[in-house]
Every structure is written in structure tokens, then in C-alpha cells.
Lab assay of single mutants.
Amino acid sequence: MATDAALRRLLRLHRTEIAVAVDSAFPLLHALADHDVVPEDKFQETLHLKEKEGCPQAFHALLSWLLTQDSTAILDFWRVLFKDYNLERYGRLQPILDSFPKDVDLSQPRKGRKPPAVPKALVPPPRLPTKRKASEEARAAAPAALTPRGTASPGSQLKAKPPKKPESSAEQQRLPLGNGIQTMSASVQRAVAMSSGDVPGARGAVEGILIQQVFESGGSKKCIQVGGEFYTPSKFEDSGSGKNKARSSSGPKPLVRAKGAQGAAPGGGEARLGQQGSVPAPLALPSDPQLHQKNEDECAVCRDGGELICCDGCPRAFHLACLSPPLREIPSGTWRCSSCLQATVQEVQPRAEEPRPQEPPVETPLPPGLRSAGEEVRGPPGEPLAGMDTTLVYKHLPAPPSAAPLPGLDSSALHPLLCVGPEGQQNLAPGARCGVCGDGTDVLRCTHCAAAFHWRCHFPAGTSRPGTGLRCRSCSGDVTPAPVEGVLAPSPARLAPGPAKDDTASHEPALH
């Protein structure tokens, strides 16, 4: 009773807030009518008042009428009001819900409408889902798969039609296919003929059939049928067999079959498995989609049935006599038709004709302190090069084509190399640097090759510096006499390219 009084008091307290929050009759008014909170006449009256005075006034009048009803109607109103779709449509209802007392429970059932309790003993237990329907569909599909699609060729003596089998029958139906081979029951999904010589313990000319048996419980189990008994694959494991010639990621696949039913060829011909030897223990289905393919039931050349050999690369099948050149017997292992072999060759040939990528240039590290003349020119003028003790990398590039010797140069053309002071002394051009340390401070000019250098860098042994005729380390061993002091540049003949010694390969005349 306390809860009923509290709900009535809360409705009177929030009546105006609810009326202002509800700006549309749908969905709240319609939901109240659906849950029998508002009768039909009051529903029509509220809609009429909404058209006349507006939605807030109409709902305020409806809530005032609701306060005169019993506690069950008020409880049902609060339940409908706080439904998710009403809270989404009328956003101003959320503060009312947040301020609702926590001790007021809106989930209690309506009085007088409590459903009768059902004894637990009368409640049926839930049924577990079964796979009976899938099993029945598999039974119905198996006879259809064994139905012949056409008439065999005159040369083929193997013609068999499976008798119709009602689904209610649980007995196995067997077809006489000759040579002791028996087909599987209607619940078998796949059958492959297997030679009895590969099964340990088999006697006589009995041949087993590799099947997948579907049981009534819905589970499946792969086994071997020899005669009327089934054997699990673990009985046929043979770890010492060295003649297993397995197909790549293979499961067994029928390579020879008669049109209309699988079996042995007439005249004692023995149908073979995809792999010879003992049956392997793992009978998992292969991951290669080509091995799941269903080959055609007629020859791809003459479009006739009979004894066919199936290609492992495509769905086509052929007569042995229709092949070019014809085959006398079934080859062992994987067999592919000429079209598949030709496609494989065409895929391999473009790969062989692809040009080989060019090898990157060989990189040879230079000892610290040495650099090529090109690196000396590329440096920024007026700045010493940083990191001189790091190992430089010199790339061996292809030799350029031989060019004509340089033409003779006048001494005026070499004027930018040297600057003559007032006393006739050779001065260095701006930006000249030593080729060893890279520093341009207090550098000297070689009178023979006009290269800038430090005496301490080229002659670290402490050799005394002569007063005139300074030469760098590369030119100090040259027998050519030094030019007379005061000459602007060496003779043009000295600039012609010539053979250089091994220790002077990195010091070429550089223009500054």
C-alpha cells in the first residue's frame, strides 16, 4: 500500500513536468492505449483535445483523470512512461527518471493478473537440437547421386540401376557391380574402391570401400567397409609401409569409374585409389579445392560414357583410347591431361624469361682521411668538412668512354686558381681547403699541381719545410723540376691526363 501511495503522490508531483515534456501524442498516448491504461473513449478524447488546445494541455488533463483511477493503472502508467522508446522521444523525461526514488519498484506484477504457477513436473524439458533432418536429407541425396545420367557406350558392359529405396527402410541396399565389389548404403556420403591386398588381414578377392557413415545421432565417422563389417581407420595404420605414394595433400579420389555407378572395369580391371599401398590413418579432407572437384561422367573428346580416367587438374575425364597418344593402361600417381600440362608450361616460361635485376654498384670503404676530388669540390665554400675520421664509401662506377685530351690552356685561363699578391707571391683563392683534413686555415699551394695542403698533414714525420718551391706529398717525388717562383700557373702540358701512381689516385688537379 505504501508503494501505491508513493506512486500516486509522484504522479501528482510530476504531472506538469510530464505534460510539458510530452510534445507529441505518439508514441506515449498510443502505448498507453495498447497496454489498456487508457480506454478507447479517453484516447479519442485526448486526441481531440490535443487538436484543440495543444499537446501539453491534453496530457495534463489525461494525467488528472489518471489520478482518479486505481493503483494498478497508475503503476502501469509509470512502466509505459519509462520505456526506452519514450525516453528517446521525450528527452525531458530523463530528469524525472533520475529523480525517481530508488525504493519504488516498478517491476512488480499487476494485482489480480498474476499467472498461475505451473508445477515443475509438468514443464517439459527442453529438446536438444538434433541433426536428424540433415541425416534424412543426406539419405535422400545419396540415391540421386547414384542414378545414371545416360546410357553407357556399346563397348562398356557395366550397366546398373540402383533400385529405389524407401527412406523408412534401415537395411542396406547393395548393387552387384562384379568382381566382388559392393556399394555402400544410402547413408554413405562418398565411396572409393580399395584393393584388398592393401588391407592387412583381408582374405580372398574381397575389396573394401572407404566410406563416411552418417549415424542417426547426427555425428559422422569415417571407416572402411569390408564385406558386411565396418573398420575404423586406426586398424589399417601401417607405419612400416615404404610404398606409400601419396598425392599432394591428398584424400582418396576415384580416378576410374563407370558411368552411372562406381566400380571396377569389366574384364577384371581393378579400380585404383589416388594413392597406392596401405590406407593412410588420417582421412581428413584435403585443403586443395581441386581434389574436391567432381569430374564429368562423359569423355571430353567423344562425349560418351564408359570407363573413364579423370584428370587431377580439371573436371574433365577421358577414354584411354581417346587420348593423344592413347594409353594402354592407367598410369600410377597423379595424372593430368594435356591442357593442364600446357597451362603449367605456359606459367613457367614467362618466369624464366623475366630479366634479372641489375646488381647495385659495389661499394668499397675508403680509409679515414681520404676523399675523392669530387667530394672536395662539392663541399660548401668557406666551411670545414665535419666528421673527417668517419669511413667514407667510394662507389665503383662504370668507366666513362675515352675522351680526347684536354686542349692547351693559356696562363690567363688559370687566373682564378691563384691570386698574385703585391710581391708576386701566389695566394690561395677563397674557399681553398686541405685535401686531407678539410680545413682551409693557413693552407699552402703546391707549386707543381696548384693543390691546397697543410705541410703537417702531408709530411707528418716532421720534415723541414723548404723556403721556396713548396710541393705536396703527391708531387714531391716527381722528377720534373719545380717552376720558378712567381709564375702564375704550371705549363698547360702538365694538365694533360697521364698515368698516375697508386698513392696519388685520389689527388687529381682540382679547380677552386
Rank of each mutant, 00 (worst) to 15 (best):
A2G: 05
A6M: 04
R8A: 00
L10Y: 10
L11C: 01
R12Y: 01
H14R: 00
H14D: 00
E17W: 00
I18L: 03
I18S: 02
V20S: 00
D23K: 00
F26A: 01
P27L: 04
P27M: 00
P27V: 01
L28Q: 05
H30I: 00
L32W: 00
L32G: 01
L32A: 00
A33V: 15
A33C: 08
D34E: 00
K42G: 00
K42N: 10
K42D: 00
K42E: 00
F43Y: 02
F43Q: 00
Q44V: 06
T46H: 04
L47I: 00
L49W: 01
E51V: 02
E53Q: 09
P56K: 15
A58C: 01
A58F: 02
F59M: 06
F59W: 03
F59E: 05
H60W: 04
A61C: 01
L62D: 01
L62Q: 02
W65N: 03
L66T: 01
L66M: 02
T68E: 00
S71T: 11
W78M: 03
F82P: 00
K83E: 00
D84T: 06
Y85T: 04
Y85W: 00
Q94V: 14
Q94A: 14
Q94I: 12
P95L: 14
I96R: 02
L97I: 00
F100S: 02
K102G: 05
V104L: 08
L106A: 01
Q108H: 01
P109D: 10
P109G: 03
K111H: 05
K114S: 07
K114G: 04
P115C: 09
V118M: 14
V118F: 10
P119Y: 15
V123G: 14
V123I: 12
P124F: 14
P125N: 09
R127V: 07
P129K: 11
T130V: 07
S135V: 09
E136Y: 14
A138Y: 14
A138W: 15
A138F: 12
A142P: 08
P143N: 14
A145F: 13
T147A: 03
G150F: 14
S153K: 03
P154G: 07
G155R: 10
S156M: 08
S156W: 15
Q157G: 11
K161Y: 06
P163M: 08
P163I: 11
K164G: 15
E167M: 15
S168W: 15
S169M: 04
Q172T: 15
Q172S: 06
Q173Y: 15
R174S: 07
R174D: 03
L175T: 09
P176W: 11
P176T: 09
P176I: 15
N179G: 10
N179T: 15
N179S: 07
G180F: 01
I181W: 12
S185E: 03
A186T: 08
V188H: 06
Q189T: 06
Q189L: 03
Q189I: 02
Q189Y: 02
A191P: 06
V192E: 05
V192F: 09
A193H: 15
S195K: 08
S196R: 12
S196M: 10
G197Q: 04
G197Y: 06
D198K: 06
P200H: 11
P200S: 11
A205L: 04
E207D: 07
I209K: 02
I209Y: 09
I209A: 02
L210G: 05
Q212E: 04
S217K: 04
G219W: 10
S220Y: 01
S220L: 10
K221A: 00
C223I: 02
Q225L: 01
V226T: 07
E229G: 12
E229F: 06
Y231Q: 05
Y231T: 04
K235L: 08
D238K: 03
S241E: 13
S241Y: 12
G242Q: 10
K245Q: 08
A246Q: 01
R247K: 13
R247E: 15
S248P: 14
S249E: 01
S250A: 07
G251L: 13
K253C: 14
K253Y: 04
L255G: 13
A258H: 11
K259H: 04
G263W: 13
A264M: 10
A264C: 07
G267N: 08
A271C: 10
